[in-house]
Amino acid sequence: MKRILIADDHEAVRSGLRAVLQQRVDWEVVAEADDGSKAVAAAIECRPHVAIVDFSMPRMTGVEVARRIRDHPLQTEVLIFTVHNSGLLAQQAFQAGARAFLVKSDANKLLLAAVDSLLVHKPFCTRSCVNELDVGSRADMDRNQGLTPREQVVVKLVAEGYSNKGISAILDLSVKTTEAHRAAAMRKLDVNSTAGLVRYAVRARLVEA
């Protein structure tokens, strides 16, 4: 039996995914999570063959979830699932250790194929993003502004309303290190306020507007 984890902060989306996955009698959804931290914990506990992870979740992005799973010897393949049809996001996902990237509008026709690919350790990407992976998206690259993945996570959590202390607890960092990441992000983005970080997070699709 192939074990699958679903992580998305919307119950309706998780329900829809379960319905599609249940078409395969030898697949079982062994765990669900509604934020990134819970997704990592569930992956460590249940050791699924495949984790289907939403790109935009509370507390931790899907890309950070993929990175955390990669850093554990779980042998779990990660599929990043998103509403955003973006080559840059796909590139970030693959760099973090995910092996599949699927736009939610393609789920009904491509989800089973994507999971099939992951179960034999082959990559899968929404077709419309393949060309962007090769040539890049200038607008999306501009939005990235050279932030490291950790800086992007810190900005996301700032935009979600977490304090430096709260961010430190979530990411298991010292408050001083969190402050350094936050300051570096503000310098790179040329902003001088929390509002500026929030505006960037919305533009870069780290959080939902």
Rank of each mutant, 00 (worst) to 15 (best):
D34L: 09
S168K: 07
R205Y: 12
R3P: 05
T61N: 14
N192S: 14
A100M: 05
E28P: 06
G97Y: 09
R70G: 04
V155C: 14
E132S: 10
I170F: 09
G36H: 10
R138F: 03
R150C: 10
V155E: 02
L171V: 00
V198H: 02
V63Q: 01
A183T: 14
T82L: 11
N192G: 15
R47S: 15
G62Y: 07
R127M: 04
H49N: 13
T76G: 08
I170M: 10
R203A: 13
P48I: 00
E132V: 05
R67M: 12
R67Q: 12
L118V: 08
Q22W: 01
W27V: 09
I4V: 13
R14S: 03
L89Y: 04
V191C: 14
L157I: 09
Q145K: 01
G87Q: 08
P123T: 04
R59V: 14
V130W: 03
A114F: 03
A51P: 08
V40C: 03
G87V: 08
I44L: 09
A19D: 09
T178L: 08
K165A: 11
V130L: 13
A204G: 02
V65L: 09
L111M: 11
E64R: 15
T194A: 12
V207S: 09
R67T: 08
G97A: 07
V120P: 02
D35V: 00
A204F: 06
A39S: 05
S193F: 05
Q145I: 00
A180W: 02
L102D: 02
Y200P: 00
L189S: 05
V158P: 00
N192F: 13
V130T: 08
D134I: 15
L189M: 07
V78F: 09
M60W: 13
R205F: 12
E45K: 13
S174C: 06
L112D: 06
A169T: 12
A114T: 02
E64A: 15
I6K: 01
L189P: 08
L112C: 12
R24K: 10
A98D: 04
S15E: 11
L17C: 00
L17F: 05
V25C: 14
H84R: 10
A7L: 03
N85A: 13
G166E: 08
V191L: 11
L112F: 07
C125L: 10
A43T: 07
R59H: 14
A183D: 09
L171M: 06
L89S: 01
A180S: 10
S105P: 00
L173W: 09
V25P: 12
H121L: 15
V65I: 05
M141W: 15
V40N: 01
Q22T: 06
S37T: 11
H72R: 02
E132I: 04
V30T: 11
E32H: 01
E45A: 13
V53M: 11
A185P: 04
D106G: 06
D54S: 13
T126W: 01
R67A: 13
E77F: 01
V83R: 12
L206C: 11
T177Q: 15
E45S: 12
